[in-house]
Design a protein around this nucleic acid. Structure first.
Lengths: 129, 129
DNA sequence: CAGAATCCTGGGGGATACTG
DNA sequence: CAGTATCCCCCAGGATTCTG
């Protein structure tokens, strides 16, 4: 590892903590929506199929957010990835690959519930896909 | 692009939307904390230097969250990345690299504020580092 | 079909103050 | 120094209902 110099106070001085940083990008469903648009434009109703657990309002919100960020464009009722959005798929894939690769470690960590405040949380959802 | 087959309804069937997926991982400051631990273990007060805008309570929260996820371990007042946490730095880096590479496009999108509900948001923070 | 309007709730996360 | 304890506010995001 490095040299253990003290951390400079201005390391993140004016940085918006995770504003434009694509970790923690978009809202809860954004990543999934992006994935759905991978193969080409989709209409609202098409998106609702795999995202059946998302209410239309929330899906709309998510899409509007992605539009505002410039990742998705809507044209004639069709949602499509912009070039920028498509380029974002790359780091997204990397992240997914990482998750699959470390899936069991992630679940392990979930198990050995460290004394969390609100304990007795959700039972870990079974993996899928 | 692909074949435009309809999206299968079970595409994300049992998936926790972005639960274990490292996009949208942790809380607001998690990524920054991880970055601070890159060069080796740090004590609470060391972390507070670059994260001066984060209150101790919130920083603690963030650290506890990272512990519970198995990304950070605390030992004798020192916080350090676990192997799992360290491995997460890779996709994180990829994401950061992407952000830097598309910085101007990201800002552009921010500018041309598409008719958002609560308009007149924050002025875009200037980039740093 | 493609949303918009309305209502409601949890908890993320900031400010401030206090403690072992 | 390394956190807790309180208080509080906002808003993501879900349920439900209504509309062009």
């Amino acid at each position: 590892m490095g040299d253990r110099r003290p951390l400079p106070p201005d390391l993140f001085d004016e940085i918006c903590p995770s504003g434009l940083l694509p970790f923690r990008f978009g809202d809860k469903w954004a990543a999934l929506v992006m994935a759905c648009l991978e193969d080409g434009p989709r209409r609202f109703s098409e998106l609702r199929v795999p995202l059946s657990r998302v209410t239309p309002k929330v899906l709309t919100q998510s899409l509007r957010g992605l539009e505002r960020s410039g990742f998705v464009a809507r044209e004639a009722g069709e949602y499509a990835l912009t070039p920028l959005g498509r380029s974002l798929l790359e780091p997204l894939r990397a992240a997914c690959a990482w998750a699959e690769e470390h899936w069991d470690e992630l679940l392990d960590a979930q198990e050995r519930v460290i004394p969390s405040p609100r304990a007795a949380g959700h039972p870990p959802r079974p993996p899928a896909r």
